[in-house]
Design a binder for these strands. Structure first.
Lengths: 135, 135
DNA sequence: CATACTGTAATAAAATATGTTACAAATTTA
DNA sequence: TAAATTTGTAACATATTTTATTACAGTATG
């Protein structure tokens, strides 16, 4: 898992949107993000799996957008990179013999679920085009 | 980005709320969370710094709530444990010679700031008492 | 004065994230 | 068709963050 996944992915997509007619290489993209090209290719692999971009191998190969930037929302990007938002759980299983320990994670999950709906609604209203056009 | 701080802190506070007349030891609390007592004491130190709990040293010592659970909101707990919500940033400074790299973090910050306002509003509506009374 | 706590520092271990190297396979272009 | 360039991916290395442990001085209780 990559913690900067969302930021990296949206950075990639913004670059692709800025150059709609080019296949951008992972090397070039990595130069903008200041990140190892292999990690860029890993994120691109994820985007490909979701059919958001397409790649061409070989000389002059690279990656370009495969969808309309106006139709791709930040919510979708969020869901492709994070499964969920939330404020975390304690690492170990709480004590099942304690009424609080027994139920805390379930209650946290409900809370986080509401947070997700909340944030999803917000991100749903912003397209890649909107985001990219800020630049 | 996400540690168990919030979950641990709200677990501690819920226990304290359930036993309003007792000083609970870090050992006892740790047993419910299934966490090392030293880490419990560290989170309690944070709560003390915010005057949410008070502790008593020595034999039969421990910690108890110092505020009314109805007045303490999850937003406050959120702010004491996370500074902010968000979807992260790429680790390295992006390329300042690229128009996208130069500005991406600023735009992400704006986006995350809106997310924070959004989530904060939600968490503001839930008190520790509300949360604890679910159990 | 023995016991049972907190407070805190120092250190260790575990988990996660990021970086690097290597190379096969694909495609272009000379 | 050969050289060059790029993706795709695996394997391994390093760095960073989080959690755990040990140790012990200080404090209140009975």
């Amino acid at each position: 898992m990559i913690s900067g996944k969302f930021a990296i992915t949206i950075h990639i997509l913004t670059l692709l949107h800025k150059f709609p007619n080019d296949y951008l290489s992972s090397e070039y993209i990595a130069g903008s993000i200041n990140l190892n090209p292999v990690l860029v290719r890993k994120e691109i692999a994820n985007l490909k799996a979701h059919h958001i971009v397409e790649s061409k191998e070989g000389k002059n190969g690279g990656t370009k957008l495969a969808v309309n930037a106006a139709d791709l929302t930040l919510k979708q990007i969020f869901e492709m990179t994070f499964e969920t938002i939330g404020l975390g759980f304690a690492k170990n299983q709480p004590n099942p013999d304690c009424p609080v320990g027994k139920n805390i994670n379930q209650h946290l999950e409900m809370l986080y679920s509401e947070m997700n709906q909340n944030v999803s609604k917000q991100l749903e209203g912003i397209s890649l085009e909107d985001f990219s056009n800020q630049f």
